[in-house]
Design a protein around this nucleic acid. Structure first.
Lengths: 181, 181
DNA sequence: ACCAGAAAAGTTAGTAACTAACATAAAGCT
DNA sequence: AGCTTTATGTTAGTTACTAACTTTTCTGGT
């Protein structure tokens, strides 16, 4: 593990702890940097904004690949929902727990409303690219990708903020609606 | 026209002018307030954030009403896309021009990526409400509404940034994809 | 017309996220 | 070991946004 990677994780972890302890808005970036044993400037070299400390999702490539692999005759929304359904079966329990915790913090913070959507540009781009590889034209590919990601984010939010909610079941229900069922 | 309404418009107009002249990020809130002949504090009493000066969209109620009026047997995504298609035929040319100008400024400003989505919470809520009135359960209604609004926003962005693009045609194409066609 | 009460705007002073420019230390390579 | 690159520190600023309080402007009833 390189040095950069180590401080990156230390910052991310320090931020999560502090956000959980005392809330997002009341926690300052200087405070986070201090707990991570690093200067404030360094924090902003690792994360472009304070928000980014919460929004690191590593699922983009997996989803895009799954969409690319769908049968040719499927329409955009079908290919996306089916691909995403497959991809989300592969993530492990630890990632799920961490994800849930982060979404909860986001949901509990008014200033972060829309933070997920704001941050999903790269994911949308990846999915749109996968659709274009299947012959969908650029504008339509972006429309479909943006729509599905927005729907997915919404579903994840209700999952994270509902007690005893089953992730797979929530996802299945959301993807079904998006597919037009 | 009340006093409050007058300064509200003056601020909005001053902001649009300055953003168009010299860009969004380089224009300060104090500068906007000055051109509107008002103090900076007053600006923030009228608009909660600098972003809000750009994002005043008055279409929410029309769309929700149109969705409510759709035939009962339609599935969520169908009802939404069909309702929105109808609603957007009713807006006048002036509104379209102003909308296009604002979206262009947003698209030209990296710091505003995702600003539309961030601001669409009320619209999503209204559409989700309309769906729930049709018997769709809450989580699914929100998923569908968020998805369609995200797709719509994406379509509007490509429309605003493409020369000689026809609004109705762009919308029709986007809504068709969302409906699963 | 006048005057109380409320609504809108001003003033001042501050907080906190982010940036620029330059200096320093630690890693990796030969 | 030395040289280059990469990661971090330091300092000093800019700018969106807030809090607390005061002053002005509008409004309605007598």
């Amino acid at each position: 593990m390189s040095r950069w990677h180590r401080t990156h994780e230390q910052l991310s972890q320090a931020a999560l702890e502090l956000f959980a302890e005392q809330g997002y808005t009341t926690t300052g970036t200087a405070e986070i940097a201090q707990r991570a044993g690093v200067s404030e400037m360094t924090l902003f070299r690792h994360f472009p904004t304070k928000e980014a400390l919460l929004l690191t999702d590593p699922f983009d490539p997996v989803m895009a690949e799954a969409v690319r692999a769908r049968p040719d005759q499927e329409l955009p929304m079908q290919a996306l929902t089916a691909g995403i359904r497959e991809a989300w079966h592969t993530i492990d329990a630890d990632t799920v727990r961490s994800l849930r915790e982060r979404i909860r913090i986001i949901a509990a913070t008014p200033a972060l409303r829309g933070a997920i959507e704001r941050n999903s540009e790269t994911t949308v781009g990846a999915l749109a690219g996968a659709l274009q590889d299947r012959g969908v034209d650029r504008p339509q590919a972006h429309v479909a990708a943006a729509a599905v990601i927005a729907g997915l984010s919404t579903a994840l939010q209700t999952w994270a903020t509902t007690e005893d909610a089953d992730l797979q079941q929530t996802l299945a229900s959301a993807l079904a609606v998006l597919a037009g069922e």
